[in-house]
Simulated assay, not measured.
Amino acid sequence: MSSNKAALDAIRRDLLKTIPAQVKAEVAKALDKAADEMASGAKALAPEGETGDLETSIRVEAGPDELSRTVVAGGAAVDYPTFVEFGTPTADAEPFFWPAFRLLRKRREGQIHRAMNRALKDFAG
C-alpha cells in the first residue's frame, strides 16, 4: 500500500512540474478562496461553546504541495473536534465540518474549474 502511495505522490510531483507558473498562480488563488470559504462555513456551523475555542481552532493550512490546502479543526489546545462532529456514547453529535464541506462542494469545484479554464485560456493565448 505505501509503495502505491509513494508512486502516486511521485506522479503528482512530476505533473505539478509541468503546470505553467501563471496557471498555478490562478489556481492557487481559487484554492485559497475556496478553502477560506470552507473554513468560514465550518466556523459558522460550529456549536458555540463556553470558550469559543472550537470555532477559533478552525483554520486553513498549506497542503502537501503548492496546489493543495487543508482545512483543519482542532490542534494541541483543542483536541475534541472529532467528538463534537461525530458524538460520543454520552454526547450527541453536533456536525459542523462535513455539513459545511457538502454545502459548499459544488461552489468550490466550480470556482477551481473556472480558474483553471481561465488560466489555461490566458496561457494558450
Rank of each mutant, 00 (worst) to 15 (best):
A91Y: 12
P99M: 04
V84Q: 00
Q22D: 13
V84N: 02
F83P: 06
L120P: 07
G52N: 01
S40A: 15
A100N: 02
D36H: 12
F96A: 01
R102H: 13
M38R: 07
V60S: 06
K121M: 11
V23W: 02
D36K: 12
F123C: 05
L8C: 02
I19W: 05
L16Q: 01
V27W: 00
E85Y: 04
A46F: 03
D14M: 04
A62M: 07
Y80A: 00
A28K: 06
S68W: 08
W98E: 11
P64C: 12
K33I: 15
L45W: 09
S57D: 04
M1N: 10
A76N: 11
L120G: 05
A91P: 14
T90W: 15
F86G: 05
R108L: 09
P20M: 01
P99A: 03
K43A: 03
A62E: 11
G63I: 01
P64Q: 14
K17C: 05
P89C: 04
F123R: 07
A76P: 08
K33G: 12
K121G: 12
R114K: 12
D65H: 07
T70P: 09
A21D: 15
Q111H: 11
R59F: 06
V27H: 06
G52V: 02
A10Q: 05
R69C: 02
L16K: 02
A91L: 15
A35R: 03
G49M: 07
L31N: 00
Q22G: 13
M116E: 15
A46P: 03
S40N: 15
D9V: 01
G87T: 01
E66L: 06
K24E: 00
P47Q: 09
T88N: 07
R105F: 13
